[in-house]
Design a protein around this nucleic acid. Structure first.
Lengths: 142, 142
DNA sequence: TGTAAACTCTATACTTGGTATAGAGTCAAG
DNA sequence: CTTGACTCTATACCAAGTATAGAGTTTACA
């Protein structure tokens, strides 16, 4: 199978497939006489696995670790589980951050309706307030 | 004020300040005879404003737009509000995505405890299942 | 006054996960 | 035999910085 077919079957772009090869997520395939990459079904499986991991927002490094561990069936899957645990925690943390951000933005946005002049814009005033607050605290310091 | 002091006062790194200058978020300051950047208090204010926007996860481009709009006090603040609205929506969407991801990961993780061999790892089996499902659907197609 | 530490300058490379391009070679159909 | 579709490598680009080298400047202290 040539790279274009593999791209069609996986839904990944040709460049992405070559990129994964450079990152050693996918081992370099055989080449035809004319130097075209020639893939087996194993490569397809591997790429789908990688795609699934990426859909879970795992980094290339995390995927690399999982693939490496997966390669020897007798080893413990502890590191795979640790990777997933850390990943879950990272996402939990990110959600918390974004929730807080969202609240701030929504309350900021509530301070302005649409047809004001810049001078009167509630949103900009909110942003400036924080700057002013900072300056005041700095004045205390100096 | 030299760049180091400005960095201290804003909590930004020197490189970041120079980076914002290159990106035209911060106008190029006066230079001393020895070519050192020399900043006014306005630059401090501007940087704090930018920092605040970044803390709200706004992109440089978004901040650029807001700063530009802010520069003429008689214009309408509609575009500022539109920027914030879109940003709020982006974040809402990202939170939704991450929530779904989180659920998938947690349920996947529940399929394995820590001291299994790779062969038996529930997490890896979950990941493979999705690959298998894909292959089956492909088999129908061809 | 000398010198060493601390500061600043520019330019460049690196990060992540790809995407996009140029310029060359290859293959299949008409 | 040529046109179009495909592939190859190498390189540059994106965001939002961070890190470095190598040079020049200023400040503190003896």
């Amino acid at each position: 199978m040539k790279i274009g077919q593999l791209a069609d079957k996986t839904g990944l772009s040709i460049q992405t497939i070559r990129f994964y090869e450079r990152k050693a997520l996918l081992s370099a395939p055989e080449r035809t006489q004319s130097n075209y990459r020639s893939y087996s079904d194993d490569a397809l499986k591997q790429l789908l696995f990688i795609k699934q991991c990426r859909a879970l927002d795992m980094t290339i490094e995390e995927i690399s670790l999982v693939l490496e561990t997966r390669a020897n069936p007798e080893s413990s899957c502890e590191s795979v589980n640790a990777t997933i645990d850390k990943h879950i925690d990272d996402i939990r943390q990110r959600i918390t951050e974004l929730d807080a951000l969202q609240k701030t933005l929504v309350s900021m946005r509530a301070a302005c309706d649409d047809d004001k002049k810049i001078r009167e814009c509630g949103v900009l005033h909110e942003l400036d307030n924080i700057v002013e607050a900072h300056k005041l605290s700095k004045n205390h310091e100096y």
